[in-house]
Amino acid sequence: MKTTIFQAIRLTILTLLFFSGIYTLIILGIAQLAPNKGKGESITVDGKKYYTNVGQSFTDDKYFNSRPSAVNYNAAGSGGSNKGPSNPDYLAQVQARIDTFLVHNPGVKKEEIPSELVTASGSGLDPNISVKAAEVQVNRIAAVRKISVDVLQQLIKDNIEKPLAGIFGPKKINVLKLNLALDNLK
């Protein structure tokens, strides 16, 4: 028994050194070869750095709005609402978001609001919206920014990210990139 215990302790220490230490160092080494050196993908615009994969809160009428977030896009943490599909408080909250959206986007019919614009994402940091969710906001942004609708439609088209290899998964739009491009329109 004594031998078994000492063998177990020694083997545990060795695995700790190897899997927590050396394996981590191997992956850290490989990360140095990656384009972003393992620090998360980012872009710098006008000296300001943004993480392209980490969603930001866009609530201004002049920007394409991002999805609701249970953690208000605070990337120090992360979290979903964890509301069940039948929860009355939750459903009231969704209804309120629909009403708010209609106020900010006069002329849009209820049936045109994509549900992802009034439901919170899983991470609270969703960087994407669907193409429809961008299109439904075009009229509002055109009015606020005094840009033609056609220019905005084209901007959306240019920013569509196709499914993987063209056939796997949904197509989507990165809200941050779209809004950066929007600010660039002059």
Binding site: I98, P114, S115, V118
Partner: peptide
């Protein structure tokens, strides 16, 4: 609530998946 659920039930889900 008569909105468009073309993408399915999106509460707690990510657009990219």
């Amino acid at each position: 609530m008569h909105i468009n659920q073309a993408l399915g039930s999106m509460e707690g889900k990510e657009i990219r998946f």
